[in-house]
Design a protein around this nucleic acid. Structure first.
Lengths: 150, 150
DNA sequence: CGTATTTCCGATAAAATTGTCTTAAAACTG
DNA sequence: CAGTTTTAAGACAATTTTATCGGAAATACG
């Protein structure tokens, strides 16, 4: 698998927030129910995202989480790096440390190409764009049959 | 991480066999020492590869494992599929079941592109090619400082 | 102030992955 | 046949990932 469950959930939740738009705090409980993700697990994911500065949180009634910086400045890659770390974008496909042009594994040059492709894709796609896509309909963020979970 | 440790080890071991060339049985113990991989763990990996028909094994003195079909007919993708299953080449990047053109996640079309790129890369690269690369030198399959582990 | 809401945080548990150990079975050697 | 080498296979342990639980702290509201 490319991404951990943590990243999968984190991305879905962030895209959901982007789809909602606005700057109001949304309770994690509500998000977890909408996306069908374990509440406590999602809570911890948002704590990581908060430490990374991507969201802010607020306690008490009317509290919850919201995007901290502008959605047009948050990429999917930033979410992955905040949750899974940068390894996906830096590491050797065979797990060899220090796999470089100088001391490459046999797949090095080929993997670099694919890796860059992934990095570019995730690094270009902003939450703003995807939020807009979600609001225009036709996309889903859950396993269910529902249409558009903005 | 893209691949499991099982696949990382399995690929390294298969590339190593391809680099050696010939049709003699190579003891797993020797391979595990050369590549610095746990012997028992590697043994199980080879058992999976044997069940998948990619290698054959032989017990007793002068026994070991060897490629079962021609190295030019084994791709790195085949090794990954034998060990990790086909999920990497079929699944949604967000883990949503049944993510298709009809009911796509917001990253669907973009991920398809990257996924195909990876699949093509791993599906084109045969053990024969890489074995030849290894024998020509300049590549490594271990963490150490050694040069070319053919 | 008291209560309800909601995040924060630590403890714990379940599951999957990774790694180790032990014994059995097969095959060669002398 | 006895002894050695080597894979096969199952049990077991360690680690990491994923998931659950319970209470503490902050905030709002009446």
């Amino acid at each position: 698998m490319l991404l951990s469950k943590t990243s999968e959930y984190g991305i879905r939740a962030m895209l959901h927030l982007a789809g909602i738009g606005g700057d109001e705090y949304v309770p994690v409980k509500k998000i977890s129910q909408t996306l069908n993700i374990s509440f406590h697990f999602l809570t911890k994911i948002f704590q990581q995202l908060a430490r990374a500065g991507l969201i802010s949180s607020y306690r008490g009634p009317n509290g919850g989480v919201r995007l901290e910086i502008d959605a047009s400045k948050i990429t999917v890659k930033a979410v992955v790096v905040a949750l899974d770390g940068p390894d996906l974008f830096t590491q050797c496909v065979l797990g060899l440390p220090g796999c470089t042009e100088d001391r490459p594994c046999p797949l090095h040059s080929h993997w670099i190409t694919s890796r860059k492709e992934i990095e570019t894709m995730l690094g270009q796609k902003t939450l703003a764009e995807i939020g807009s896509d979600l609001r225009s309909g036709g996309y889903r963020l859950t396993a269910g049959a529902e249409w558009t979970d903005a």
